[in-house]
Design a protein around this nucleic acid. Structure first.
Lengths: 182, 182
DNA sequence: TGGATAGGTCAGTATTATTGACTTAATTTG
DNA sequence: CAAATTAAGTCAATAATACTGACCTATCCA
């Protein structure tokens, strides 16, 4: 029986498409290394965030909530603008996440002293406890990885990840730049 | 004028919430290192994927399309099930992305030889060209980073990212496991 | 006082993903 | 061979995350 719209080649045996591209032609060793890096980053990031997601889903919170929680915890008193710059999302998108965290009592805010337009964001005790819980899962994963590879490899990891970042993010991590620069 | 529902503490000056948690108390150096790792992964991954996104948005394609394109390119003849295992999404989600790539002529498929239920996915010439273009942007970023930090650091980066992965993903990258194991 | 800035919000839309149910074709198994 | 299983496709509804565009208030600054 013929399908109305066969998307696949209906052959009696495996017949590659007319002009089958060579299976990822490796021009030089450097090229292969770069492609491997793509995989490393994908799987490493996937499995690193996965352990956090598992903890969060029980609390009806998503990855976006965790990101906000994390960076508020890392930067007590951060402004909304600062958070927007780090997360690189629009304020309408942050609003959903941030209002949920505030409504649930994870995040508190206070008007700035010098500039009272600013909303200085902080974690509440409850928020701090939640962040600690989620962090514990990721900390265990990192700790295992770090112990498995040794301090020299960890140093290399830090250097590469750092080099991958934009200039502003590097400055932020060095403590020589503000969240707004990221 | 009073707001109906003031979400923030209306104070004359900066008054932290009653029980302000200490600004990310660092218990030991290891703890700080783990927290730094969270930041490294976030910013590194953010800026790595960002260069690809910029190329893709001109072609009306999203990050999901690129992920499928990448792993089909890396694994010519991969099955739908294999792709699903790597991406860790449902087949209904993959369908949208994959059908778009097939309709646009980036991906071709053929029935398997031994098992004709299988749809063996490959990149067409056009798909291969697109993947190359997107890869070029990421390759440049990685190449710059690798050159800046030296081969020893690169080796450390690889070891840490590898250790962060789940067992199945490690086996896949070693070539000793199939996509289904990831 | 008027413009710029920080922030909030409403409305609509897009992307990526989900759950659940159902179908077809092909393989495997009793 | 019939029944169960597997690979894949599809329809429908929903959720999470993000977007554009517009408009508003409060505050700061020149």
């Amino acid at each position: 029986m013929l399908k109305a719209k066969p998307r696949y080649a209906s052959a009696d045996r495996f017949v590659p498409p007319p002009k089958l591209p060579p299976p990822t032609p490796v021009v030089d060793l450097g090229e292969a290394e770069m492609r491997a890096a793509q995989d490393l980053l994908f799987f490493g990031y996937r499995d690193f965030t996965d352990v956090a997601d598992k903890v969060l889903e029980e609390l009806e919170l998503g990855r976006a909530h965790h990101r906000a929680l994390h960076f508020i915890g890392r930067n007590p008193g951060i402004t909304v603008s600062g958070l927007l710059a780090i997360l690189r999302i629009k304020k309408q998108s942050l609003a959903r996440v941030l209002n949920a965290l505030i409504d649930e009592g994870y995040v508190g805010q206070a008007a700035g002293f010098e500039d009272r337009r600013l909303r200085l964001l902080t974690l509440t005790e409850k928020g701090h406890a939640l962040e600690e819980t989620v962090f514990a899962a990721q900390r265990d994963k990192i700790a295992k990885a770090y112990q498995a590879v040794g301090p020299q490899a960890v140093q290399g990891f830090r250097m590469v990840m750092r080099a991958m970042m934009d200039h502003g993010a590097r400055a932020y991590m060095d403590g020589t730049g503000s969240p707004e620069d990221t």
